[in-house]
Design a protein around this nucleic acid. Sequence first.
DNA 1: ATGACTGCAAACTCTTTGCACAACA
DNA 2: TGTTGTGCAAAGAGTTTGCAGTCAT
Lengths: 152, 152
Amino acid sequence: MATVLNDVDEQLAGALRAQGLRVTSQRLVIHRLLREHGGHVTAEEVMGAVEPGLPGTSLPTVYATLELFEELGIVRRVHPGRGPVLFDSRLDEHPHVRCRHCGRVSDLEGSGALQSALRAAQDVAEGQGFTAERAEVVVSGVCADCRIAGAG
Amino acid sequence: MATVLNDVDEQLAGALRAQGLRVTSQRLVIHRLLREHGGHVTAEEVMGAVEPGLPGTSLPTVYATLELFEELGIVRRVHPGRGPVLFDSRLDEHPHVRCRHCGRVSDLEGSGALQSALRAAQDVAEGQGFTAERAEVVVSGVCADCRIAGAG
DNA sequence: ATGACTGCAAACTCTTTGCACAACA
DNA sequence: TGTTGTGCAAAGAGTTTGCAGTCAT
């Protein structure tokens, strides 16, 4: 790593060093991409996006890095039900919407009532001895574009 | 099919004939199992449970049958995030709880507030042109048994 | 120098597909 | 008798694992 580190990089480097982990170019590049992109990405997409800046990066490394980032609290895993897992750089718990026709996943905004209901549901689970850590909500159906295009 | 049909079988047979579909032993046996079992099952588990009554049944047939039953509204698919898809013979929309240690999935009872919040969330999605069909909720964490056993 | 990290290849799990045969209608 | 449904085998998507070599510390 001869690259000069910007402040986004320094954040990651700090978090890694705090755990005795190594600062590698793969980790830095993937971290930058996630910060820039913002939305949901698959491991495959990360792989493709890394390619120009760091050719030869392998899919197993991408998976390992994303898993590490999840442990560091830098990304959250989203399970859309069908298709590959998505990695979300938005860190707050929020519901998703998935089109069963085109597969696109997006955030569902403006459902504050749901957030509190979810917390209540987690309390119910806790009351039964379960240690609740996350609550995923996926609304599925057909998106506006696909409906217009005539999807059943 | 020389078997005598009981009334559960007749329900299925009627639904199948109404669609011009055939009443096969595989479909009858799998249907009975689902009615008896009640909970969540994987395709593999169905396969194993069918074995004694109908040896030689294949996994592709089990998948095809479960997909058909889903279309007929006899089962609902549940995506627990990690691991195989589950087929649930409980037909009402309800949240699930999944232990990330043992993988067990169970229903989350007594969260009525969540149901209405989910309906509200679906309305929000509808308001954005999305045609909402389902809303899945999966609370994940560590179950009581695994916690006792010392799972991190 | 030493051990964490990477890339490659291969294995793995879960699910679907293609095709020939069987069996319901 | 005409298809629909089944079983077999194989392919497919997505992810993980093992191992030899590389590189950060």
